[in-house]
Computed example of a mutant assay.
Amino acid sequence: MSDHAWLPLFPLNTVLFPGGALPLRVFETRYIDMVRDCMKRDAPFGVVRIKSGKEVGVAAQPDSVGCLAHIVEWDMPELGLLMLQTSGGQRFRVLETRTLPDQRIEARTELIADDADAPPSAELVACATALNTVIKDINEAARASGEGGFSPFPAELKLDSTCWVANRWCEILPISTLARQKLLELTDAQSRLAIVHQYLVQHGIVAGDKSH
């Protein structure tokens, strides 16, 4: 990104995590132009949660931390509609924004270092085992739909990684986008996994620690 100081932002009512898979349906001219420019430069754009405002129309106010989205695949099934598959890269912090005449937002950013992976733990094993079951169920449902159902999970599973397991759970838990955003902003993978584990125990998805 060094050759392009201003990062184009795509404000959405969702939160992208590193290593995540995010399909996007792009139909607004301003964002089709943005995506084309990124593809030309083989550069990512930034996905940020909308703090206030809407996805369409006047520029929305983005949250202060987002995630780079790398374009993996694209298709234009009809004129004026781009279908993208994107992959979550590194997180970034928004330092300054500017709004372009077409109401697109660009930002000066600083990258946030990737979380260090924590040593294996009982929490990781419990969360990873449950996640593996969920992934299989969702993938089977996507295949059974017969309509090119999309799996929200990357092809390569990293069930021995605290970062990866915590991030995938953060994407699929039925929580608010604000709660998801707070989890994205944590800079410690073990803390993120601990919160996920607590949620799964409270909702009976994994067993609690019987020693307590």
Rank of each mutant, 00 (worst) to 15 (best):
A144W: 00
D117H: 11
F10P: 00
A179M: 09
R104C: 06
G146T: 03
E96A: 09
G204P: 04
P101E: 12
D63C: 09
I105K: 04
K54D: 06
K182M: 06
R36P: 02
L79F: 14
L173E: 08
L81I: 01
E96S: 06
L16G: 05
N139F: 06
L24Y: 09
A5Q: 14
I32A: 05
P11Q: 11
M1A: 15
C163S: 08
Q103W: 13
D102R: 09
L68D: 05
L157I: 03
V48F: 00
I135Q: 13
G46A: 03
H203S: 11
Q198D: 13
A130G: 07
G53H: 14
I172L: 13
D3V: 10
V165G: 07
Y199P: 02
H212W: 10
L183R: 15
Y31E: 00
A126S: 15
S176R: 07
I50T: 02
C38G: 05
E140V: 13
E147T: 13
T177L: 03
E78M: 11
I112M: 07
M76E: 15
P18T: 06
F27W: 05
R180T: 00
P44Y: 12
A43K: 07
E106W: 14
L79Q: 15
T129Q: 13
A141T: 12
G46V: 05
S191I: 09
A144C: 03
K182N: 07
Q61K: 08
E106R: 11
Q190C: 00
F17D: 00
L186D: 02
D209I: 12
P23G: 00
T133Q: 11
L95M: 11
L22H: 04
L111E: 08
A207I: 10
T129N: 11
W6E: 07
F150I: 15
V206F: 06
I112K: 08
S145K: 11
P62N: 01
F45N: 00
V35G: 03
M76A: 15
R93M: 12
R192S: 10
N167G: 11
C170K: 03
G57H: 07
D160L: 04
L183S: 12
L200I: 11
T86C: 15
V125I: 13
L200T: 04
K136G: 03
E171T: 10
M1K: 13
G53T: 00
A130S: 10
P44G: 12
L200R: 09
N13G: 14
K54A: 15
L111H: 12
C67K: 06
L95I: 03
E73I: 00
V35I: 06
